[in-house]
Amino acid sequence: MTITIRAGGPEDTPLILAMLDSSVAWLVAEGRPGQWGTEPWSASPRAVEVVRGYATSGTPYIAETDGVPAATLTLSDAPGTYLEPAGEPERYIHLLASDRRFKGRGADAALLAHAAEVTRRAGVSLLRVDCYAGDDGKLVAFYEKNGFVRTETFTHGPDAWPGQVLAQRVR
């Protein structure tokens, strides 16, 4: 099994949406709809615009396993509008998702390592991400396993979505 990572662009919006849809279906099947709801992202015009916006203003990266798209994240210079910037140059990870057929094969971790390397090469020392902090905490633990440390909690939106910001210093 070979994992390769390529830079993408707005043209990858349908692929990113498909991975988000796969993640939503898996989360629902696991009884964990709190993270991203129960409906496919591709069925929501607002969600499609969010993905297209990140893919246009940031750089999507696609991890391919033996040539098949397996996971994605988008890297930008700032968090979403619901969080404050760090107060120093940073790179921010958005929309890490995978095609659940590739769960446990390392594509997500490879993308995080790639994001750290891209950040380092840009001369930026701070890489941040936020994620769902509800349910069993496995998502926060996943980021911690990949070198991130918790920095702040937050809630977002009318449903008080529980979030965790994590950071990694790259040198």
Rank of each mutant, 00 (worst) to 15 (best):
S44I: 10
S44Y: 02
P45S: 11
P45I: 13
P45W: 11
A47N: 12
V48P: 00
E49T: 15
E49I: 12
E49K: 10
V50H: 09
V50N: 08
V50W: 05
G53T: 10
T56K: 06
T59E: 14
T59N: 11
T59R: 12
P60C: 09
Y61R: 06
I62P: 00
E64T: 15
E64I: 14
E64W: 11
T65W: 08
D66F: 07
D66G: 11
D66S: 12
L73R: 03
T74H: 07
L75G: 04
L75P: 02
L75A: 07
S76A: 13
D77H: 13
D77S: 15
A78I: 07
A78T: 09
P79W: 02
G80C: 08
G80K: 00
G80T: 13
T81M: 04
L83F: 03
L83P: 00
E84M: 12
P85D: 12
G87N: 10
E88D: 09
E88V: 15
P89E: 14
E90P: 04
Y92A: 08
Y92S: 10
I93L: 01
L95S: 12
L96W: 01
L96P: 02
L96H: 03
A97E: 04
S98Y: 09
D99T: 10
F102C: 06
F102I: 13
F102P: 03
K103S: 14
G104E: 09
G106M: 04
A107P: 04
A109P: 00
L112S: 07
A115P: 00
A116Y: 01
E117P: 05
E117M: 11
V118W: 01
T119P: 00
R120P: 07
R121K: 14
A122E: 15
A122V: 14
V124P: 01
S125I: 11
L126H: 02
L126Y: 02
L126V: 09
V129C: 01
V129S: 02
V129A: 03
D130T: 15
C131L: 09
Y132P: 00
A133C: 05
G134I: 04
D135G: 01
D136M: 04
